[in-house]
Design a protein around this nucleic acid. Sequence first.
DNA 1: CGTATGATTGATTAGAATCAAGCTCTGTGG
DNA 2: CCACAGAGCTTGATTCTAATCAATCATACG
Lengths: 258, 258
Amino acid sequence: MAAETLTAVRSIVRQSQDIVATRTYRPPCDVCVECDVRKQAVCAALDDSELGALQAIMTSTKLETHRTLVDQGQPRNRVYTLTSGMLRLYTMLPDGRRQITAFLLPGDYLGLGDEDVHDQTAEAVVDCSLCGFTVGEMEKLMDRYPRLRQRLHQMTRIALRQARDSQMILGRLAPVEKVASFLLVLSARAAEHGGALNPVHLPMTRTDIADYLGLTIETVSRSFTKLRVQGLIRLPDAHQVDIVDRRALTAVAGIEAR
Amino acid sequence: MAAETLTAVRSIVRQSQDIVATRTYRPPCDVCVECDVRKQAVCAALDDSELGALQAIMTSTKLETHRTLVDQGQPRNRVYTLTSGMLRLYTMLPDGRRQITAFLLPGDYLGLGDEDVHDQTAEAVVDCSLCGFTVGEMEKLMDRYPRLRQRLHQMTRIALRQARDSQMILGRLAPVEKVASFLLVLSARAAEHGGALNPVHLPMTRTDIADYLGLTIETVSRSFTKLRVQGLIRLPDAHQVDIVDRRALTAVAGIEAR
DNA sequence: CGTATGATTGATTAGAATCAAGCTCTGTGG
DNA sequence: CCACAGAGCTTGATTCTAATCAATCATACG
């Protein structure tokens, strides 16, 4: 196994990325009210009149493609809401093997961990915008607005559900089934987040998909090809998937009813 | 694939189990105060004086080995705290493939889902005792005691962390590594729950372990044998594992630092 | 004591990882 | 403008490993 090589390569990449990872600034006055993810993020728990309290402790952050937002092992000082772009969350083994546990979409919350250090690394798949809060101030705010804590609890439960779905996908599905489910899940989530169901956009690389599904890039690629040849999807380009036959794709995914 | 056979067999087993799944009764007065899991379960959030409120809405339940407590798809009326025994939580595909997502130990909470139906089946690995609460009454109680909700939120975060660790194990570890991590995790959890670190008790079958780790029983068995032959563990019997060389076992697990 | 269930071990097969080219697209510099 | 380089993706050939198929063994139970 070429694990050492992998680690070496990745740590080199890491160094160049960490120099300037984020740019932070105070937001203008009424950003929150007209925010794109107002209805999906934690802030959905607050009405417009309460939103000021959240905005008061919030800082906006931009994160460029491939930059690291938080690193596995770093102290957990801040939590975030993703407002645009996509993040990948992953854990890495000492020998360089990587498991992506989730892709975060706009509205998703980063910092659902329970410990004082981050147990995962979060990186930008594409350019991202985020709202940041210090853990302490967010705690205070949740004490003041119980609905905020309730909403965060709900988001944690949803994340748990997604993680458990992913356990099924990782443990019991064959490669083509994994890729088919991946596409369907992404399509459904895009729709939930206010996007379209059908042309599924995959901003991440094949390597990311492989590290999410517990496969190699070659197997991911071959699975895409199989689905394309069978006429279930079209692939205008590597990052754009047109679901031609959703019913058949669902059957392949092995999920059937859901 | 002999999936149809599997389904058939399992549904027959199911029928015989569902006839009388649980026996329920009102608990005597001061059960909660001197409960074994008083310090680990949700109730840890309440002090002795507040415990009465919880006890008032609680019903004790016994569940015999292999009985089903809740079924994937059933309405989610009640939630539970496991007080003794062990539960397996799993999702099943229409074709009979099964993925166990968690083994619940005493103190663990069942019902962290977010929907009005259970997304998983919960079965007794061995005889179990549980405290049951209706969802509605638990909700009311959490409104009254915010610390209770906070505690449940924390337990959800811990479950999420465990699910994500499991994603890594399922997606990126080799069979022997999977089994090694499984043993270490179980050992650590037993210790957390007030048990001993070392002789690890495995009440579940090899089939359960296989369905948890995304393997077949044969591969699980062979992995145990490998670890035994290498002198890392001893196997007095199939359900008892003596960890001889914890350091080496950790190295095999690929986790190394944690 | 025979039967059933679960666990282990062995032989064979299927399929995903690995190894190894190509290919496509993008961006760069001559 | 085109040649070239590089990264990411796809495809092909080969290897290796876990699944499958098939006994055998161990233990509990009627």
